[in-house]
Amino acid sequence: MKNYPFTAIVGQDKMKKALILNGINPKIGGVLIQGEKGTAKSTAVRALADVLTNTSVVNLPVSATEDRVVGTLDMEHILKTGEKKLEPGILAKADKNILYVDEVNLLEDHLVDILLDTAAMGVNRIEREGVSYEHPSRFVLVGTMNPEEGALRPQLLDRFGLCIDVESEKNVEERMEVIRRRLNFEQNQEQFEKKYEQDQNQLTYQIQRAKELLPAVEINDHLLRAVADLSIELGIESHRADITVITAAQTLAAWKQRTMVQVEDIYEAAELALPHRLLQDPMKENSSYQKLTELLNQKVVDNQ
């Protein structure tokens, strides 16, 4: 079965942008996609791997067993040879790939702990059943969730670099286009793929270019100050927030084929990197998110 091409996804530009940025620069720290069912979340994540070179999507089921995730002793090997050997788990496979957790808010607690540990260090350390072993496990963590089904643990939430909300399309024409494309895809996958081949190749090339450009992207002190100001103004405690905004802004600049970060990159990055780090006042819904948008709009106007 073929994946639906990334470039054929209608709308959802913010989600696509966040995914591409992570594809260019895994250091951003992944993305959390929040939204209702049926908004092409899974499709987009699976399609992303096709436009990145040498990357695959590794699925982490919410109710997986610890053995399966961390890795465990290879029984067969031990019984046959008497030597210990590690049977690698999902985290080993996820190294240098995308680790995709659907319904991440429902991820079982013992798995969340493992994930937090590994994501923080970039290393999976196995200390169980007489095995002491470690291997690198640097992955782009992509989670999707429907907030109506429960909240995410704050530690895990902060671990996601970017966070975006997706909504179902409200425009009838756009929705019809979604169905039209999907029907064509179901009818003849090869033909459909051919139609988007050029777009896909171009996107792959663009991402590749951005990757090459990224190390050369510079950011000046003036902009660093702007980031710090923004976080202070919004009352964000996490320093990871600042770092993520800057990393994302640099990646954005590379994506736009520039070697200098500009102020609009900062605000564009902040829009993706800050929403889930704002202190939510439980009494007023969305208030801090609105505050962020207002503030960002204000800043953009000021700078023009």
């Binding site: 069912k37 049926g38 908004t39 179902s168 399309e169 009838v172 929705r175 169905i179």
Partner: peptide, 16 residues
């Protein structure tokens, strides 16, 4: 599309 949107079902997958 209009039936799905009108029904109040938020799941866009329902269209398809």
């Amino acid at each position: 599309v209009e039936v799905v949107m009108g029904s109040g079902c938020k799941n866009q997958e329902a269209d398809m």
